[in-house]
Amino acid sequence: MIEVDRLVKHYRASSGAVVRAVDGVSFHVAPGEMVGLLGANGAGKTTTLRVLATLLRPTSGSARVAGCDVAIDPVGARRRLGYVSATTGVPDRLSAREILRSFGELHGLPADVLEARVETLVDVLDLSAFADRPAGRLSSGQRQRVSVGRALVHDPPAIVLDEPTSALDVIGSRDLLALLADLRARGHAILLSTHRLHEIEARCDRFVVIHGGRVVAEGSRDALVGDAAGLEEAFFAAVGEARGG
């Protein structure tokens, strides 16, 4: 469902130097699977996710979303992808319902499908108490739920989330992760980047650890953890080995 194959993304910095943000990353996420993308700041996680979201073009290699190559068929990929970022970026003056409707219209959804979809999301994401309140008056947790709804408005088969719980409290994080578990159970492919390893340790099917733009470890929790005390320790070990090597 989500396939990344030898993906390379280089930037040219303002100094003129080439920054190798992603340097040959490969992994995949199958339907009904939730994969955690782990790495320190600057490891290349956000760049990888933005290539998948067609916001950045790959320098080389390929990335496919639900069968659509992001470089060849970016519109097809966008129609099949839901993208959630850490910055909610919800317009302050619009209500949750208006935001969901507006973004559904950006997908060209017919009015009847859109209205039904908006009401489903209001219900599933528990937005009803504040669905008609301007987003500027919502808490950060409520705004993130609206942001998630906006990403799901077209019912995409593939979902990419870039640090979605960073602005949420414990309850908000738990609710969001429960929603993602439900989406996974319904066959969505979910790729999730986060620094809060303890939140996803028991929830993801597999993990991909990247460092310096390269995959340094990949596998299920048990395979990664091995003799280590937990995922966090295994993560440090994988990154530490990469830094040492």
């Binding site: 099949r80 017919p110 979809r117």
Partner: peptide, 27 residues
């Protein structure tokens, strides 16, 4: 793999471009 079908989103509004322009103009 071939592109995945997305039944709802594959049903497009009659003038999706106009709807998206109107949505942005509104907000």
């Amino acid at each position: 793999t071939p592109p995945v079908d997305i039944p709802d989103a594959d049903r497009r509004a009659p003038l999706p471009a106009l709807a998206s322009i109107a949505a942005v103009a509104g907000f």
